[in-house]
Nucleic acid binder design. Structure first.
Lengths: 162, 162
DNA sequence: TATTGTTATACTCTATAACTATA
DNA sequence: TATAGTTATAGAGTATAACAATA
């Protein structure tokens, strides 16, 4: 049953090693650009369709003040527009401008090209399987982290104390 | 040959999604602690054996000033010690103190326990394969990033121009 | 009262530039 | 000259607290 401690420990280190490698590559890619990786992340989710700020913050995993600032920055760059939610006077709806769509497309094309180049000796199947593996890992982490944050006991011991 | 654009684009997003999930979990784990994730990373590599600061910075993928500050912080916390390299008057050798070893072990145990818990419905084989997959991806990225940084042309077009 | 969003402030992590000391 | 390391400074990204406006 479950995962052995040594395997879990190895997996932790593999995750952090990947983080480090990605950080270096991403940092090199945005050097001298106005739109840093955080703003790029916001653009991505706004690009999936007009959305509330609250919803965006949740999907991005950042706090509301952080998102508020990012939206303000993107608006200043002319990449997004805000309008009031017709169904809720407190809320805003954020959407990409044409310039924002261009920017997002450009960012995606650049990233895709770099990764294609970096993985040029990989097979299509390897890349596809890796994407699936990452997705599965991320979903497990998000699900468990949500449950933990909500105070749901996870181990049998904790459940007894509950 | 190689990886299709759509697959590469998907993989990029899977990588960033994992980063986000891990950031949230890691941030929650170090809340209120002296030893943040960056210092924990330094501890890990120092824990593999007494090492030069330069070597550590390279392995961590950070600049020399950043590592210098981290080492100073860890020394202040009594977790590492520095001594001059007997073979090079300019260089230092950094090693864990007993307290540093304790701290590293405690960090690893805590992380391992959390990941084991989060992946409690995973099989040992799935976890092992995921670790291997991450390792392969990281190695490909690091290798290509190194080559790019060194100015080695990567695409046939660029090679022709060289 | 609870929720949406903003502003003010501070912390973590990182980088570049300028420097000292040694090779 | 080149390398190892430090200090000073700046920037990106994030969080908490306090607030205003609306539900």
């Amino acid at each position: 049953m479950a995962v052995a401690p040594d395997t879990a420990a190895d997996l932790v280190y593999q995750i952090f090693d990947l983080q480090r490698a990605v950080r270096c590559i991403a940092a090199a890619g945005v050097r001298g650009q106005d739109t840093g990786v955080a703003l790029q992340g916001v653009l991505r989710f706004v690009g999936e369709g007009e959305s509330r700020a609250t919803k965006l913050a949740e999907r991005l995993g950042v706090s509301a003040p952080v998102l508020s600032r990012h939206i303000a920055d993107l608006e200043e760059q002319g990449l997004v527009v805000r309008r009031q939610d017709p169904e809720d006077g407190r809320a805003q709806l954020v959407a990409l401008t044409p310039a924002g769509k261009d920017k997002l497309r450009q960012i995606e094309e650049q990233r895709t090209a770099i990764l294609q180049d970096y993985l040029r000796d990989w097979s299509e199947a390897d890349a596809g399987n890796t994407a699936k593996t990452l997705h599965k890992l991320t979903e497990s982490l998000k699900k468990s982290a949500r449950a933990t944050a909500a105070g749901i006991p996870s181990t049998p011991e904790e459940q007894k104390h509950g």
